[in-house]
Design a protein around this nucleic acid. Structure first.
Lengths: 345, 345
DNA sequence: CTGTTAGCGCGTTCAG
DNA sequence: CTGAACGCGCTAACAG
């Protein structure tokens, strides 16, 4: 019975046509007579024909596969991007191959190499770190690349969240609540996104007519634990912040611990704003106010751009998507007792 | 220059050997003269030769690809399984193709079909629901399958966490803290894991010499919100539970809201135990006490089993891994005021 | 509209 | 130890 192995030849024989005709109805491009097509289709279903993607890719010089480079599957930030990319790719008959940097102890280039061996037709770089390395490596291969939230000038195409708008959303929200001592907790600024968000933070402060105090900016955080201790340091300041704006939701949640440890309440006493809107922001207590980026949509768009490039269509260099402020329980009006000089705006 | 496209022919020509020889050194199987091998290797690196996985798969009738069926990438439960599987697969030169049921609106079989078209050498079914459908569909294809935490008898091979031990761990822990009114919140028992865990729960109660009260079991929960309202109903009981054991961490966290809404404290007033130990259990407040299953290792083991089957080795039908109780802040000794008749064991 | 044919890049006998 | 030749299943011209 040799189930699951029917080749195009067997279908052709069963339908009394040539393999070319079978190929035609399978791919739906060229015109085929209605009666013949029906015969072929019947044969295909009867034989449970399943086109051999490898053979197809080999012959067509197109694997219908795209690679998606991420930093870490365990980071919930990427899950939505993956989902969006997969969903959109599926619609076009493409498959997404995940390249997770964290599984490759053997160095970054092996990761890309594996994908390239698989002959991916294109690549999406969503990895937040090491994008520079990728950029260098990928530039020498002439393979289409779309970058998500990466360094604009390193890659020919990119989809980006509007960092500037995101920071403004956060700061404006806090300013409206009366906060004027707003801290920013971020990682090593070597990552382009961070530098951009930091400078956006400063710009937003300016727009809100709040003086920038470098003392309130903590850089170099890499883990939740570090975020926590950074927040603790901030709270121990002579003139501590009344609000904290973290680079991402995880670190924002890290701040929760420090705030509680200081005997304060998140929200009521110290406001906290995150960035990303990962799923667990709703589960923590209080639920985190955060700047939401439409990651699923970004994954979709990245695929669309990539496939357009593959098609040879003209594609914009960068697509900017807008973040959105999601107000939950971690922000509140500043307490009177904590309010300093310069009351009101 | 035609970079990134060096074929085996070009390498053969450059090394002045036949493609067969190149193939031999590339695959490392057959013996090749030391001098020739060196020449070939040199040519390979110089030409940046990258074996064409599709061609290789076509010729060898082995794609070196395995499919991993999951329910939802957004569910953090699967992230670790994915990671484990990918890491282990990588070691063997295999690639993991994700099959996410949630991206396929078009029905389950399309998901599997896609994977089969890709000619995956084997399949891992980690999807918690719809395993029955898969089982039926996959049985007719003769493709190796390993199941993770699924119905034992549906698939030839499986890796399972010891459900019995897990439930016992949770109940014993709570019993030791003095709890005797322990609720269980679970989903539709049509999912085999749930039925098993529920019966294990009952068995564990018995071992702890606690009477089983059907009133304290809520079935049919499917979302965090439903878990919350289920917990609310439990708390409104005439003789409410002092502890809750949830089918998974998400629903356990859902209970938090209901407990707070009732003016009670998680841990101090009502103990909560989850299952799985997903990443955010540490971020909630209080951090969740939970039964941890080694999902990354399970992913690894599943791959190992699958590859062993492919190799033709004999493989155990089922590998059972042990869960582990992780005590965090959501459990505490039962309050005196809440303690009922039958004090102590 | 349909069939023929030549590869796609590589694994694998089978000779030598 | 090495090379020649065939075929994996399919797409893409090119004829008809």
């Amino acid at each position: 019975m040799k189930v699951g192995a029917a080749s195009i030849y067997e279908v052709a024989k069963a339908a009394r046509v040539s393999i070319a005709t079978v190929s035609r109805v399978a791919n739906g491009g060229a015109r085929v007579g209605a009666r013949t097509e029906a015969r072929v289709r019947r044969a295909m279903t009867r034989l449970r024909y399943r086109p051999h993607a490898l053979a197809r890719g080999l012959a067509a010089r197109r694997s219908h596969t795209v690679g998606l480079l991420i930093t870490d599957v365990l980071d919930p930030y990427f899950a939505e991007i993956i989902r969006g990319a997969q969903a959109q790719a599926e619609l076009a008959g493409y498959v997404v191959l995940l390249g997770d940097a964290s599984v490759h102890t053997a160095g970054e280039d092996l990761l890309v190499r594996r994908l390239l061996e698989r002959r991916v037709d294109g690549l999406i770089v969503a990895s937040s770190r090491t994008t520079d390395d990728y950029a260098a490596q990928l530039k020498s291969e002439d393979i289409p690349v779309v970058c998500i939230n990466g360094p604009l000038h390193q890659f020919p195409h990119a989809v980006q969240v509007d960092q500037r708008a995101g920071a403004r959303l956060a700061v404006e929200h806090l300013a409206k609540l009366g906060h004027r001592r707003i801290a920013h907790i971020t990682g090593p600024v070597s990552v382009p996104t961070r530098a951009e968000r930091l400078s956006s933070f400063r710009a937003a402060l300016k727009e809100a007519d709040i003086a920038y105090d470098p003392e309130l900016v903590v850089m170099g955080v890499t883990t939740i634990e570090e975020a926590r201790s950074a927040a603790a340091r901030l709270l121990a300041l002579a003139d501590p912040p009344t609000a904290m704006f973290a680079y991402n939701d995880r670190w924002a949640i890290g701040c929760y611990g420090a705030i509680r440890a200081a005997g304060l309440r998140v929200g009521a006493d110290i406001s906290v704003v995150g960035f990303d809107d990962i799923v667990m922001t709703e589960w923590v207590d209080p639920p985190l106010t955060t700047v939401s980026q439409p990651r699923m949509e970004m994954g979709r768009i990245a695929i669309d751009m990539l496939l357009a490039v593959l098609r040879g269509d003209s594609v914009p260099e960068v697509v900017v998507v807008q973040p959105q402020l999601v107000v939950r329980g971690s922000t509140a009006a500043v307490r009177r007792s904590a309010r300093r000089q310069r009351s009101g705006t």
